[in-house]
Amino acid sequence: MELKNKVAVITGGSGGIGRAMAKAFLKEGANAVVLVDLNEAAVMAAANELGCDGEVCDVTNEDQLAAVVKRTLEKYDRIDLFCSNAGAGAGGLLTDAPNDIWQKQWDLHVMSHLYAARAVLPAMIERGDGYLLNTASAAGLLAAIGSGPYTVTKGAAIKLAEFLSITHGDEGIKVSVLCPQGVNTAMAPRSLGDGQTDGIIEADDLAKTVVNTIREERFYVLPHPEVEDYVRRKGNDIDRWLGGMRRLRRKSVG
């Protein structure tokens, strides 16, 4: 899909990856970009700076997200691309991450994608055309050592994107899932150790990969191309991969 003259909605749009995607989409000639974020001051500042619409919304609240979609459809008559991008990190393992952390991560990384799809799919299916871009993480394809809630919910986000593609691909709906490693945003430090990343990239560079992947309508958006090889190795020999990850964990906690 070409982004020229398209209408896009981006959650988590006030900064980082979301803001970078908005800039890139506008550069490609998008007709309108709607930035959505929980932080009113931040999203309105970003919207004013970029020349976008700004919407305040808690994406874990289905009614609020549906209202954003309704207002956008009323104003622009269509949504060509919905980027369900909002997310947040969380540490902890099975034993030391409390249930409320697991639930918050599930609501943010899985249910928000589901709520977005429920809201935008009817109009997209009626038109026979539409694009969903869900932000997950390389951690969902592989693992983030020391972050159980994040890893598990990002993995579920990828599975949901797969299911959306399988279920609605014949109705004209394209689906991509964004799976970066480290990105220089508020969520990531300048460097990550123990082999957990192949380098911290800038959000603007990630956005270029997003644009190219949408143009080619490929499922995986991999700003760190090494991840594709890691996933292939994992699939070829899961037991060997698990053993390697256990060695990496021992090094990390040692």
Results as ranks from 00 to 15, higher is better:
1 M>R: 11
5 N>R: 09
6 K>C: 05
6 K>I: 09
6 K>D: 00
13 G>S: 04
13 G>K: 08
14 S>I: 06
16 G>A: 10
16 G>F: 02
19 R>D: 01
24 A>E: 03
25 F>A: 06
28 E>V: 05
31 N>H: 13
31 N>L: 15
32 A>R: 15
32 A>Y: 01
36 V>H: 10
40 E>Y: 03
41 A>M: 00
42 A>V: 06
42 A>L: 04
43 V>K: 01
44 M>D: 11
45 A>I: 00
45 A>C: 00
45 A>S: 13
46 A>T: 10
48 N>V: 04
48 N>Y: 00
49 E>K: 12
51 G>F: 02
51 G>Y: 08
52 C>V: 02
55 E>V: 08
56 V>W: 07
58 D>I: 01
60 T>H: 06
63 D>Q: 15
65 L>K: 00
74 E>G: 10
75 K>W: 06
75 K>L: 09
78 R>P: 02
84 S>V: 11
85 N>I: 12
85 N>T: 10
85 N>F: 12
88 A>L: 11
89 G>Y: 10
90 A>R: 09
93 L>S: 14
95 T>K: 12
95 T>S: 12
96 D>L: 12
102 W>Q: 11
103 Q>W: 13
104 K>V: 00
105 Q>E: 14
107 D>G: 10
116 A>K: 02
121 L>A: 12
128 G>T: 13
128 G>E: 10
129 D>H: 14
130 G>W: 07
135 T>I: 05
138 A>M: 11
140 G>Q: 07
145 I>L: 15
146 G>T: 03
150 Y>Q: 03
150 Y>T: 08
151 T>I: 06
153 T>F: 07
155 G>V: 04
160 L>K: 07
161 A>M: 08
161 A>W: 01
167 T>L: 06
170 D>N: 14
174 K>E: 03
176 S>Y: 01
177 V>T: 09
178 L>G: 05
179 C>A: 13
180 P>K: 05
180 P>H: 09
181 Q>G: 13
182 G>A: 15
182 G>F: 10
184 N>H: 13
188 A>R: 00
189 P>Y: 02
195 G>E: 05
195 G>R: 08
198 D>W: 10
201 I>L: 11
202 E>P: 01
202 E>Y: 03
203 A>L: 04
210 V>H: 11
214 I>S: 01
214 I>A: 13
216 E>Q: 14
222 L>C: 08
223 P>E: 03
224 H>E: 08
229 D>V: 15
232 R>V: 12
233 R>N: 11
234 K>I: 00
235 G>L: 13
239 D>Q: 14
239 D>G: 12
242 L>I: 15
244 G>H: 06
245 M>G: 02
249 R>L: 12
250 R>N: 08
251 K>E: 09
253 V>H: 04
253 V>Y: 04
